[in-house]
Design a protein around this nucleic acid. Structure first.
Lengths: 241, 241
DNA sequence: CATCCTGTGTGCACTTTTGAACAGAAGGCT
DNA sequence: AGCCTTCTGTTCAAAAGTGCACACAGGATG
């Protein structure tokens, strides 16, 4: 399929009127995140716990009965396949929930949650969480906002996986991790992260990651000796086709 | 990494006490889906429209200002990459929402929504949807339940993509499509679906899909001349490592 | 009827990715 | 200092996947 830019499929489809475009972008009150409010709803310190780096919060296969909320630190969600391969499906930050699958059908954890640094986590039982969602509209809103953002992110990861080669996927996670320290400094220092972990995040092998890391370094897109610096503007060109 | 079955990583991590496992599986009122209730909240027929097969509901890049809900039929969400490759990221059924990304940050549609057969769709503006979510707890619940299930599904798709070869991915979508006609008859007839579409769903090329379809047929896992039958029990063996 | 489409069956050269091996560097521990 | 472990740099053959090309079939359309 050559580069027929915007709509590559010859649209043999009828394309009549479209709904839902009456007015554009109202300054409508959007669902937004209010950490203060949230914490008050989550209640007192009794339900909170601190985890150290690499401590497991729950494991794939455990009974799923509670939802967690990060107030400080980072949490990594991983899945192991039947053959023992491991994949990182998310790295979560303060303000993120996890383990929310149990609110749906899931009786069992589908992934393993591990603290990535010193991490403070609030948790509430499924019952309590359902109660909150039923009785506290503001809390529901916050939770919905989170689910939406998470949805979007996973979907992007999926699309990335479907479209891009491992080289681009690596470039993408590096860029995401770089902006991660929230100030989008053009040159960001990344949290320590082994090539092995990177490989698990983009779904490839370590040798592949190593290969591309060296390539990026030679090209001046990143540099690392000890700590890892990313030159976002430069690395970005990898993503442009 | 050889086959070190359950936990392949030598867990050098401290694994102390875990939170959130006080009591197990309370018969607590779980978030559940009530279509009747939902429809009443969504209001009268004024906001509803019927789309014919292949009709586009919205396109990638359109302004995003409304949320849609399927009452009948099927909707396909697709994304096109810069190079014009197309990927199917979801096939949605009655009871599913879509376009909900606009409730979060998204001012623009990230995917194209297309009716896959004759399809009835309710829609509501972002403003109205936000209002409903704020004022109607039952509606929020339904929406949360949907978001959760969708989340789980996308996550599974992502993991599938990360772990499995195209052969397995094909087997998986065929199985999913088979159970799709909701009765999990061991031998299901699939909705018509070109090899091209299948290729877009699993992120590979048509020739690859063709290759495996023939392989599956020769092995007796599926058969097709005109319509497509899947022998679920048999095809399942493809997924077992 | 001829012709256009769309979907299928198939082959093949080319590229990417895997999986595994081996060796060096750096840090922690005794 | 010696030893272990984790992370990295590098290589390489084999496997998987891609991108094309061409031929054929059936349905729709004029």
């Amino acid at each position: 399929m050559p580069s027929r830019s915007p709509n590559p499929k010859k649209s043999s489809a009828p394309r009549l009127q479209k709904l839902g475009q009456e007015k554009s972008a109202l300054p409508v009150s959007i669902l937004e995140f209010d950490p203060k409010l949230l914490l008050s709803k989550l209640g007192n310190g009794k339900t909170s716990q601190v985890y150290v780096d690499k401590q497991v919060i729950f494991s794939q296969g455990d009974a799923a009965d509670a939802v967690y909320y990060i107030t400080k630190g980072k949490v990594k969600l991983t899945v192991v396949s039947k053959r023992g391969k491991e994949a990182v499906i998310a790295i979560l930050r303060p303000g993120d929930f996890f383990g929310e699958g149990c609110l749906a059908a899931q009786p069992i954890r589908l992934s393993t949650a591990t603290a990535v640094e010193q991490t403070s986590i609030k948790y509430m039982s499924k019952a309590k969480m359902v109660g909150l969602l039923k009785r506290e509209p503001e809390f529901s809103e916050v939770f919905i906002a989170y689910l939406l953002s998470r949805n979007i992110r996973i979907e992007e990861d999926l699309v990335d996986q479907l479209f891009n080669s491992s080289e681009k996927r690596l470039a993408r996670v590096l860029l995401l991790l770089a902006q991660y320290g929230k100030d989008s400094t053009p040159e960001a220092v990344l949290p320590k992260m082994s090539q092995e972990t990177l490989a698990e995040m983009i779904g490839t092998t370590r040798s592949r990651v190593n290969f591309f890391m060296n390539k990026f370094r030679k090209l001046g897109f990143i540099d690392y000796n000890g700590s890892l610096h990313v030159h976002s503007a430069l690395l970005n060109v990898v993503l442009r086709d």
